[in-house]
Amino acid sequence: MATPEVYIDSEGLAEDQRSLLGKLAGLCRRQPLGAAGALVVIAMIVMAVFANLISPYDPELAAFENMLQAPNADYWFGTDQFGRDILTRLIYGARTALFVGFTCAFIGATGGLVLGVASAYFGGRFDLILQRIMDVFMAFPLIILALAVVATLGTGIQNVIIAITIPFIPQCARVVRSSALSIREIPYVDAARACGFSDLRIILRHMAPNVMAPYLIMLTTFVGQAILLEASLSYLGLGVQEPTPAWGLMLQGGAEEYAESAPWVPIFPGIAISLAVFGFNLFGDALRDLLDPKLRNR
């Protein structure tokens, strides 16, 4: 096989870049909400990655002489009841939120992908039993299942991740299964089987790539949901524990107590949670429109 010649043509490159920018601009015009979402997501990632460079103070160090200061030039978003800078804790909180969000979404969606495709591929009794098990998990409200798991395992960030991931798996499995069912009927799966490929190889190499659209859509929705669930659990005192900076935790305890005299304590973390989930949801919606033409306009 001859390797194709590679030209390095500066003009062509410039044209390529322009068309890329043009494409991006076109995308922003067609999906203004999605572009806004992507912007929030990128801003959040930058904030989380460079938290130690951006933030002016230590997120965990209490300084009681600065207790409950109103927003001012030194502390832009004010300080909490331990004298910690709220802005710093918000920036570091983005780390916690994204870590929990991405971990739960990735494990949940991938677990669902494998189970969903396997369920569709094997069919029969395996499918039936697996679906009944999924039914059981789907019958619980998300927060109640997560609460029960946290109660069992105890609080802390790893257990919160487990508690949030478990309800995600059946949700994704159900969606993936329904798309995988139609793929199974396409002759190339039979062809792969005729070639003597193992079931595992057919599931992972041949079927899974074809259900990427629902997988990616579920993945982005899960990130937002996980951030919200983590915040709810931390708010109830069952999630991330002090002194780790987490948005839900910042709303717990003192935030309500001091709400009247120090409204900046509850206001900013809530805005951070809302904005983050908002960004991921908008982004996920735009992705759905782009990847899945059947669902367009839904």
């Binding site: 919200l228 709810s232 709400a259 809530g270 949670i273 809302s274 904005l275 983050a276 989930v277 949801n281």
Partner: peptide, 20 residues
């Protein structure tokens, strides 16, 4: 945007804001 914000805003925070 309004409806997506509805999913994004934690209802407990909205509750605190309403009380405030």
């Amino acid at each position: 945007a309004f409806s997506i914000a509805g999913i994004a805003i934690p209802s407990f925070w909205l509750g605190i804001m309403i009380i405030l």
